[in-house]
Amino acid sequence: MIRENPSQSSVGSGSIDPGSRFAHSVGRHVGERIIEVLLFLAAFSAVAVTIAIVAILVFESTEFFKHVSLVDFLTDTQWTIMFADKHYGVLPLLAGTLVTTTVALMLAVPVGTVTAVYLSEFANPRVREVVKPTLELLAGIPTVVYGYFALLMVTPALQWFMPDLPGFNMLGPGLVIGVMIIPYVSSVAEDAMRSVPASMREGSYAMGATRMQTSLRVVVPAATSGIVAAYILGISRAFGETMVVAVAAGQQPNFTWDPREPGATITAFIVQVALGDLPHGSLEYQSIFAVGLVLVLMTLFFNVLGHLARKRFREAY
């Protein structure tokens, strides 16, 4: 090309004519950068806090494991850290956590799922408008109230059927935690079912299916990933639940799989120790970081499991 195109030269040259319409773009770019950095910091703060928590847990746990071997920690069946004869086996706390969580899930999974199916597929809008907020109200009650409810109402009621049931036991609090997490399970599962496209339901009805057949054979399978996510959320909630167990299960680390016996969970132990007057840096003090780390790892495990389940069952409507 012999002659340079004038419009091309103004774009192609490095410097921008200060009089041109492009002049302000530099200032705007800086503004955009600042906003971007601020947004990044906002998002990063949550990540930073998470990293900090895990770092502190790991650091303090290392101190703990300098005095207690990991093998003892994982295999010893006694947790008697407050007594003269000290044992540092996490199994009793782990068993307590698993027992209360299992009891809770045995109530919350069926009731939550049935509630979700009913609200999503059967309830008329007026019923739904009353039931949904009422259910969500359950989630708003402070957990300490649930704790006393378990201790003073549920356990005495259970003792009607089981006269040998001790006043402190894991069954009552487990059931109450179950009631507590029903709204989490049902509302996430219901959202998943309601987001199944109407065209899929129509396809089922058009085949001559009843409402029940459509719900159970088409809508629930289509919403599997969301329903599994609801269960995982419920498990995480039950796992981390502290007050109900601390109040009503007896705070006795007890290696048993029998929900009728008293017990303590990881969280209940942490609150017990954290509220007591233990010297900073003592082994008892450091032990709560070790069990806290166990709790975080288990919650992480369930979250990863939930993530995998979601990916496995995700449907491309």
Binding site: P197, S199, M200, E202, G203, S204, A206, M207, G208, A209, T210, Q213, R217, V218, P221, A222, T224, E315
Partner: peptide, 24 residues
């Protein structure tokens, strides 16, 4: 029977999709 505007297979296998009407 009815066939819709957008294909709306169920979240099932090919076999179970076709067998659906018979199963219900």
């Amino acid at each position: 029977g009815m066939v819709f505007q957008k294909p709306n297979p169920f979240p099932k296998s090919i076999f179970e999709n076709v067998a659906y009407g018979l199963r219900v």
